[in-house]
Design a protein around this nucleic acid. Structure first.
Lengths: 111, 111
DNA sequence: ACTCGTTATTTCTTTGTAAATATAACGATA
DNA sequence: TATCGTTATATTTACAAAGAAATAACGAGT
């Protein structure tokens, strides 16, 4: 059997996407880069797209996941909140366990 | 908590998609309609897209999932093979159990 | 006041994908 | 051999999503 099962998970709220794999990737890049523009560059993503994702996340969450500051020393920057960190680990844990679950189920099938 | 977790699963082989939710839907429509064009119409899908999906599935499977005949009484038609039936039920079972798994995992989180 | 690198936002352009359209091929039946 | 409804395929059109580019705003430090 040379087939592989794949999956994608995401979290929605009343009207639309809240968290998905791309958004989690962006959160992690913001954390490691300390800036939205650098995070976007590190993911080969346009700044605008990154900003849209961040804005959408912050607007649809109870608390912001990212805080950004403009101006000042270094021009500003962006950082992940404690709530944001919690979301990253929660998402990655459930995603990983989903993969494991699917792999084991799929192996049982013997297609 | 007004968040909901969602997922999509699919099966790939060496270079590309083999089975996904849209393809399974199409297989089921072919089964109930007996024709590719009627199946496409019932799903509000263009004939061309339906044909592409069917062709891709048949080409990447060990055995065809759909057999189509052209000409003859009634103009022809399409039908699901036993192998195709097996794929439908296998996919739907694993998909359902994945949803249940995710829902229960997500409930544990209390975001 | 001026500089700096960043965030924030608008507008325009491009591009990739889906949809519409048209047409050929097919073969049992009459 | 003419008809019929389907499968099979190429070509064109339309549209939406992504990207590029340009510009404004910001505020600590000098």
């Amino acid at each position: 059997m040379d087939y592989k099962i794949k999956s994608r998970i995401w979290v929605e709220h009343k009207d639309g996407m809240f968290l998905g794999e791309g958004r989690i990737q962006l959160l992690k890049a913001i954390k490691s880069e300390g800036s939205l523009s650098k995070a976007a560059a590190s993911l080969s993503m346009s700044y605008k797209k990154a900003w849209n994702l961040m804005d959408s996340m912050n607007k649809s969450a109870k608390e912001p996941l990212v805080v950004a500051s403009t101006g000042g020393k270094g021009g500003g920057g962006a950082a992940i909140t404690a709530y944001g960190e919690k979301m990253i680990t929660a998402f990655e844990n459930i995603n990983k366990s989903c993969w494991e679950f699917l792999d084991s189920e799929f192996k049982k099938l013997e297609l």
